[in-house]
Design a protein around this nucleic acid. Structure first.
Lengths: 246, 246
DNA sequence: CGTGAGCTTGACTTGTTTCAACCAACGTGG
DNA sequence: CCACGTTGGTTGAAACAAGTCAAGCTCACG
């Protein structure tokens, strides 16, 4: 698959160099777009490229976006915030992830998206993307798979928040992230980059920062994992999996 | 809109008599299908009809369904259950609701669906439905709107479960249901049919049955609402809205 | 050198769960 | 017709998980 990248870059549809270098290229919608452009009728779909610094917003809830962003590099989080400041992170976005498939059909964003690290992303014109969906069946297939996955994670999130203990929620969050990173070859010997702050873990798991801290130091003391210098190692995968109830 | 129903019933695509009588007909995917069949290229799409008794399953998680069910009458709940019995209800399904849009693309069900009252539903062949989506743009539009709504409620559920108190969750559940029923003209003077058992409210809000009971009797004592004989009246809409933080 | 963001830890409070007993309504079968 | 189990609801007491408040620490940054 990788040997085609050069062709893809120079085809009528320019995925751009960066996207093909992205670790998640094969599972990326960008890739699907490129494939579709090669195999189906040609299309000119030139996404704009953007870079945002850590802690900056990519979009806020209720913004009208005429564009569908796909993450190419870095970590981001999509979240909802209540008027009184309570916040719930709905998902962490890694390279290859679409911010939300809903954006392809509805320009108003349901949630705000914040860069955790520095983030590079491509923005595809919504109308063009939508049109391409109709003309390129393989793209549509890929897209519907992404959509189904998105729904599955939303369901998982609901049962995690509604019915699981703090320990389970945090252990599962770490496993889910490690799985996503593994798919992208960003996990080696159970070690991964881990740019999350405790308050972000709290917002993702529906807990308070303090409690996240105590649970994590519990895990550390139990020899399940180790976090330092923005890097996380799962020292006892079996043990952590037991805690996570996976 | 209603005066077309007769035509619709007798067009090449037979929605059937029952569906057109459904209180949710205008916002129904069945209706969109009927419209599409009339206006676009003709299609033959004959859903099968089913009736299931209260407390029976319509499908269980991981079932392979070659069919997309749309509720025509009654209440149902879609839920996920953990091996140890913990359960989370993801949504209540009312007439006009598709069980899950994901079923159109992926035959394996992500959750189990249980009838709360007796339920009548129509099952459309997945492949036929999917094909119709491509040939009938208006159907696709309607469908994508349903998808976006589905995503929005999933997001709402996440923040409710993650960040709201028991009082808020229950009050909001009642408001959300009353809104859905109002759309279907099934709400009069803040009174509605309410077939839910406390344990179902508990599973929907991530609480225990006992706590749901105490919160509800709190609401009752505060004069916010009144439940008896499977019927619920919101006596103090403003007060309940304040509790719900809407 | 001060300031602020992030992490850790401890003491205390609170919301929710757990356990338990009890009651009412209902269906079923003797 | 009554005896019986089942399901659903109510209430109270005790236990517990997680939240709140607070202090002290490190570290990066201007």
């Amino acid at each position: 698959m990788r040997e085609n990248d050069a062709d893809l870059k120079s085809s009528t549809f320019d995925v751009g160099t960066a996207c093909a270098d992205c670790p998640a290229f094969e599972l990326n919608l960008c890739h699907a777009l490129a494939q579709a452009a090669k195999q189906g009728p040609p299309m000119t779909l030139r996404p704009s490229e953007h870079t945002v610094a850590a802690r900056r917003l990519i979009c806020r809830a209720r913004d009208v976006l005429e564009v569908v962003p796909i993450i190419c590099q870095g970590w981001a989080a999509s979240a909802v915030t209540l008027p009184d400041g309570r916040r719930q992170i709905l998902s962490f976005l890694l390279p290859g992830d679409v911010v939300s498939t809903a954006l392809i059909f509805d320009p108003v964003s349901q949630c705000s998206v914040e860069a955790i690290t520095e983030v590079r992303y491509r923005a595809f014109k919504r109308t063009e993307f939508k049109a391409a969906l109709h003309t390129h069946p393989s793209l549509f297939d890929k897209f519907s798979r992404v959509w189904v996955d998105e729904k599955a994670s939303a369901n998982q999130l609901a049962i995690d928040l509604g019915r699981r203990t703090a320990d389970e929620r945090i252990a599962r969050l770490i496993f889910n992230l490690s799985n996503k990173l593994a798919q992208r070859s960003l996990l080696r010997d159970w070690t991964m980059d881990f740019p999350l702050r405790q308050h972000q873990i709290a917002d993702a798991t529906g807990l308070t920062v303090v409690h996240v801290g105590t649970v994590l130091s519990g895990f550390r003391r139990a020899g399940l994992l180790d976090i330092n210098d923005r890097s996380l190692t799962i020292s006892d995968p079996a043990g952590l999996r037991r805690v996570a109830n996976m």
